[in-house]
């Protein structure tokens, strides 16, 4: 059992906590439960879980503060859970360093899918621990950082400089939801209203180019009002969002 991943569930509502516990149990994950922020921080330091599922509406602490504290020493994936009407909270949490978010009410399948994405990121990071790999590979997508070229199923994709920059940024954060603000800051270095529109256009173009070359598989996921994410594609049609 010790090689099973350890998940920390931080949720104040007993019913939802129970639901998550049962779900994780049936899938053979190890888990620890925390009912509030201070318990969560305690669990993180004592058990070093691989992934944290964090509810944003905790009684004792702001979810964002917990993320900032944990990010002080750990880069473990954090998936925040919140209601859909609180887009601003999600963006804030993602900007603070969360990797992904789940919207209440969520299905069990959705929860497990996000968990797999997060764990894959952990493993990819562990494998790449030796240093920056010069070649990025994800399903049929290949990026040769040294040559500055991207390939889909072996044939080169023709990208404009901005599109290439966007692709690299998403690739380096595979599995993580990047907010619009974060992307704008990284690519354009600044944030102006007119850039928001152009980001949408560049992203749409990039998605089209990746899609037309690589079949139906969506590599870049859109989270409207929040941001974008590069999905890790291991085997064909495993991820079906």
């Amino acid at each position: 059992m010790s090689n099973k991943p350890m998940i920390l569930v931080v949720e104040d509502d007993a019913a939802v906590r129970n639901l998550m516990a049962v779900t994780l149990d049936t899938q053979g994950y190890q888990y620890h439960l925390a009912r509030n922020g201070s318990e969560a921080l305690m669990e993180v330091t004592t058990h070093q879980p691989e992934v944290m599922l964090l509810d944003l509406g905790l009684p004792d602490m702001e979810g964002v503060d917990i993320i900032r504290k944990v990010r002080g020493w750990s880069s473990m994936p954090i998936i925040v859970i919140s209601a859909r009407a609180e887009d601003a909270d999600k963006v804030e949490a993602l900007d603070a360093g969360a990797d992904d978010y789940l919207t209440k009410p969520f299905s069990v399948d959705e929860l497990l899918a996000r968990l797999r994405v997060a764990l894959r990121r952990v493993h990819a990071e562990q494998q790449a621990a030796g240093g920056e790999t010069p070649i990025y590979e994800n399903g049929g997508l290949q990026i040769d950082y040294a040559a500055g070229c991207a390939y889909m199923a072996g044939s080169e994709i023709h990208l404009t400089p901005i599109e290439y920059k966007l692709l690299c940024l998403l690739a380096k954060n595979t599995g993580k939801v990047l907010t619009h603000n974060y992307i704008l800051k990284e690519i354009w270095g600044s944030y102006t209203a007119s850039d928001v529109g152009s980001l949408r256009v560049f992203m749409a173009m990039l998605r089209k180019k990746l899609q037309s070359d690589g079949g139906a598989q969506p590599y870049i996921q859109t989270h409207i009002g929040i941001g974008y994410r590069m999905l890790r594609i291991d085997r064909p049609s495993e991820e079906s969002q």
């Binding site: 404009t160 400089p161 901005i162 354009w188 007119s194 850039d195 529109g197 152009s198 949408r200 256009v201 560049f202």
Partner: peptide, 9 residues
């Protein structure tokens, strides 16, 4: 409609 100024550098 929102008009977009494409900002390719």
């Amino acid at each position: 409609i929102a008009e977009v100024i494409e900002n390719e550098q």
